[in-house]
């Protein structure tokens, strides 16, 4: 399937930070999660993808267009929720929608008011008086109401309560459900949005660390818990992020299929057990070695 978004070797530098050679593609029906610790470059990357500023180097095409040739066409088809909503603080949600609507070719007012209602955002309260979570939800409402083909969401779960976070997950799944639209989210994995991502890109200190299908990644990365002395030294040395507990040790295995045969005896004897790693375990290990 033709990718909606293709980025190749994107670079951006500014004082104190540089994002180096990030490449990614996103096809219809896909949800890509960009994860990384604070300062990894997630916001810089998503701003580049949303055309908020140009890359210093690299190639970026959305819907087969570059921003220099088709900025209006691209932004008309992209719903971008920035980390810090920059709307006019003295406008109400309704006034903001009235301001934004004429710029879009597929604005759906009924959808907008439906979302305001669903999120219980007061239509006539000034934007500055909304709570942090409501501001994020308003941003999402605005991004969804012009019927975009691609959503770019920068930490959309920040400040949301559990119910709205669940609704956001459902909304994103429904959005890509038809197989014609796609989502790119940047987030901390602890936000719970890693659950909806099908592919992941880990960033650390402005550089890509790992890009993979999430299920494949989690099939390879496992926690191995074992009694002291249950594994031979060479086998134990292949585990990383070792932790010592009163009742044994735990280590992270980065290629479980390759290691499973070696572990078979210890597993059968009950001296070791395997547990699925979480995405956050992998991310923390890869970015901070812990």
């Amino acid at each position: 399937m033709d990718p909606m978004l293709e980025a190749r070797d994107l670079c951006k530098s500014y004082e104190g930070f540089s994002l180096a050679k990030v490449s990614l593609t996103l096809s219809p029906g896909g949800i890509l999660g960009v994860f990384g610790p604070n300062g990894a470059g997630k916001t810089t990357l998503i701003k580049l993808l949303a055309g908020q500023f140009p890359a210093d180097a690299g190639d970026l095409r959305l819907f087969h267009l570059g921003y220099d040739e088709g900025e209006r066409e691209i932004k008309d088809r992209v719903g971008y929720c920035p980390q810090e909503p920059p709307y006019y603080p003295d406008y109400t949600p309704v006034e903001l929608a009235r301001f934004a609507a004429p710029f879009y070719s597929r604005w759906d007012g009924a959808c907008f008011y439906g979302l305001l209602d669903r999120f219980r955002i007061s239509a006539h309260k000034k934007f500055r008086h909304l709570s942090a979570g409501q501001k994020t939800l308003f941003s999402l409402s605005l991004a969804l109401s012009h019927q975009p083909d691609l959503l770019l969401l920068d930490e959309p779960a920040a400040g949301l309560d559990d119910a709205n976070r669940r609704f956001l997950q459902d909304t994103l799944r429904a959005f890509v459900g038809g197989g014609e639209k796609a989502v790119l989210i940047s987030s901390h994995v602890s936000d719970g949005l890693d659950e909806v991502a099908e592919r992941v890109l880990f960033l650390g200190r402005g550089a890509p660390i790992l890009a993979a299908d999430k299920e494949e990644l989690l099939a390879r990365w496992k926690w191995v818990h074992f009694r002291e002395g249950a594994l031979d030294g060479a086998l134990a040395a292949r585990l990383t992020a070792m932790r010592h507990h009163p009742f044994g040790n735990s280590g992270l295995c980065s290629d479980f299929p390759a290691m499973s045969a070696s572990l078979a005896d210890a597993l059968a004897a009950g001296d070791a057990r395997v547990e699925n790693a979480r995405l956050s375990d992998v991310l923390v290990h890869l970015t901070q070695g812990g």
């Binding site: 066409e73 932004k75 920035p82 920059p86 709307y87 006019y88 934004a100 879009y104």
Partner: peptide, 10 residues
């Protein structure tokens, strides 16, 4: 708010 205007297709 130019950051807002930059979100819009203009």
């Amino acid at each position: 708010s130019y950051a807002f205007l930059r979100l819009l297709p203009v």
